[in-house]
Amino acid sequence: MKISYFAKTREIIGRDYDIIHFPTDIRSINDVVKYLSAKGEPYSIAFANQDALRFALDNEMAKSDVSIENIQELAIFPPVTGG
């Protein structure tokens, strides 16, 4: 699965995206965040405050408890500040 990062999250991670093959027990966005955070820095820093993260699955906004089954891309980013 492609994990894309934007804005502050991208800067902390240090790259635009990762391609990761997750174990079968990683089923939701929450699972992905926990899995990556457990790998340590920079993920543990970027995802330290999950309330300050927003997610999109295949370009649609999604809550953190949504399944990642059959999803090609998960985007992770901070709350938006446009306008």
Binding site: A7, V80, T81, G82
Partner: peptide, 14 residues
């Protein structure tokens, strides 16, 4: 539209 732009559109200012 402006209120929605502030919270719904994926744009980030620096």
């Amino acid at each position: 539209m402006m209120d929605r732009l502030k919270t719904d559109i994926p744009l980030w200012k620096k």
